[in-house]
Design a protein around this nucleic acid. Sequence first.
DNA 1: ATAGGGTTAG
Length: 523
Amino acid sequence: MFLFASGRPIACRSYPLLKRSYTNLSVQQLQALLGKNESNPRITHQLHSHFITAGLLLLHQKQNSGKLLLFNPLLRCYSLGETPLRAYLLYDQLQQLHFFSDHEKRLPPFDSFTYLFLIKTTSNPRFLYPMLGIGIHGLTLKLGFEFNVYVQTALVGMYLVVGNRVDAYKVFDEMPERSSTALVGMYLVVGNRVDAYKVFDEMPERSSVTWNVIITGLTNLGEFEKAIFLLEKMPNRTVVSWTTLIDGYARVNKPKEAILMFWRMVACDAINPNEITILAILPAVWSFGDLSMCGSVHGYVVKTGFVPCDIRVTNSLIDAYAKCGCIQSSLKFFMEVPNVRKNLVTWTTMISSFAMHGMGKEAVNIFKDMERLGLKPNRVTMISVLNACSHGGLAEEEFLEFFNKMVSKYKITPDVKHYGCLVDMLRRKGRLEEAEKIALEIPSDQKAVVWRMLLGACSVYDDPEMAERVTKKLMELERGHGGDYVLMSNIFCGTGRFTDAQRFRKLMDVRGVAKLPGHSQVT
DNA sequence: ATAGGGTTAG
């Protein structure tokens, strides 16, 4: 993936072709580009590719003690993104490259930034080897970065992610230069409100980030009264302070309080919401069902220019209109967005909006428009389409056409949710034989789940013959699931075949299976 | 360039 030969980096075939030219940009411009697109893995990847081919990856300022100008920002992007492993590999390759080059015996040109981002890599929940963080901790000690407050703050966070709380305390305890903000944050994450509050209270000076850290921590712990108490005491409230509480209330399903916070922010502090505030308030707006407020948020968002900038705001608004019951506004807004700005989520949102309104045909048309533009649906898109078909009164042939297309054309392996849609559709149609035929063709690892769904469908339609066949199939696959026996015997009871029912109950006792407390597989 | 809030289904 990251190939280097004879000390010189070379490009690798797996990199995507550059769609735009980065060749004339200065180092500062490239840095800014990385910072702006930190959440866009494609651009990160393209820039990485460019750095390698143009020999910029190891570019460093000679007069400034050899700091890496583009390597660290690149590391940061990968560490925060979807593939933190790339960050680790990037670091590892450079380290080995340095090790094998014989002209220098000194340590690699890594600085505190490198290790800070490396620690963040290991605390990223997507990173599969969090224990590597402990080794990196050792490195920072060896290299003398233990006096860097940022590095240590990241270390504390890392240990909390790894679950090693004792070490988190220990690292903090040995910090020579304590950042009170970090201490407050750490206590909050650990759940130690009293100590966090005490430290916070004794701080000689607090930055706005300090305030926001404690407000966020209290909100996440559900301590809304204390969070608001601090919010009111805070000297210079920022958008973040308010947004934290708005989001917190929306998440615990208290839309009224969230909306109240929103108005207080605007009225008391004359602070304008930003994109993230909008994303936080919209779920509150639709769960409160306030269509008129949906419209005023829309107006505000258009006026401030968030709409042409942030596609997520657009998507969230389309969704909010649909969930407030106004599919017309949803569609109108969707149509106003130029196709070049729409991303996969935009299309998926519109399809699921039609699905929740039972408008199957319209959903399918949107899906076909999307296909015509050459976009490839993902798992979520397909769930929405399939849902739209079964809820929107479409023929089962059409449903099955989409299902097959998903597998053959788009190479998406159906999971439990897709099969859930399938069984749901067939149940609505009462076509259980069809379902049985399909179930026979399903790949092995998912089989049991699907057969079990079918068994559930049989019990609704009182089809004991088929239920028996399905149960037999289930017995072949796995013998130990007690719920199947119970369901089967219930079906026989329901149709008056009590001896058959008893037969299954007995079989259950003989095989020594117990019925576990029930939980639904279909959600 | 470094700590704080983040779109779609179920």
